[in-house]
Design a binder for these strands. Structure first.
Length: 135
DNA sequence: GCCAACGTTGGC
DNA sequence: GCCAACGTTGGC
């Protein structure tokens, strides 16, 4: 089991929209590092859903429903998508400001590489964020 | 709205 | 293969 965090701008694709649809094909990733992370996702892996720009907080939990396959929105064979399904809307969001302030989270790729949109998490980081989201 | 960080492109 | 120019992302 691996843990991930995906970013989405809520104006383009919000958590609420994701829940309303019940699933999501995570397309539009055009960055090799993010692509490589998606290719490493396994069905059942858990994924934190983060709102960038507006909110700047982790809002919910998703899981990988289908492993990577070619991105149908482009003819370019380099890019892939995965399918995600919502698991849980967190009772409490975890903000970027908090994550930056916590010693245990300051090495997260989310903070160190702010432009990466698909980010691997350590189990400890994942567990801590989920715990904070339920406080 | 600005700007820093960083990835990509293209000329040489 | 290097590097300058440029575009995009995302925090502030």
């Amino acid at each position: 089991m691996n843990y991930w965090l995906v970013k989405s701008e809520p104006f383009k694709y919000s958590w609420d929209h994701f829940v309303a649809e019940g699933k999501s094909m995570w397309d539009g990733v055009r960055n090799y590092q993010a692509r490589n992370n998606m290719m490493a996702m396994k069905a059942g892996d858990l994924v934190l859903f983060y709102h960038s720009n507006e909110g700047k907080e982790v809002v919910g939990l998703a899981k990988v429903a289908k492993e990577h396959y070619p991105d149908p929105t482009t003819d370019d064979p380099r890019w892939v998508v995965v399918n995600l399904v919502p698991v849980e809307k967190f009772p409490k969001t975890v903000t970027l400001a908090y994550m930056k302030s916590d010693e245990r989270l300051k090495d997260m790729a989310l903070i160190k590489q702010s432009r990466l949109s698909v980010i691997p998490l350590k189990a400890e980081e994942f567990d801590l964020i989920v715990a904070l989201a339920h406080e």
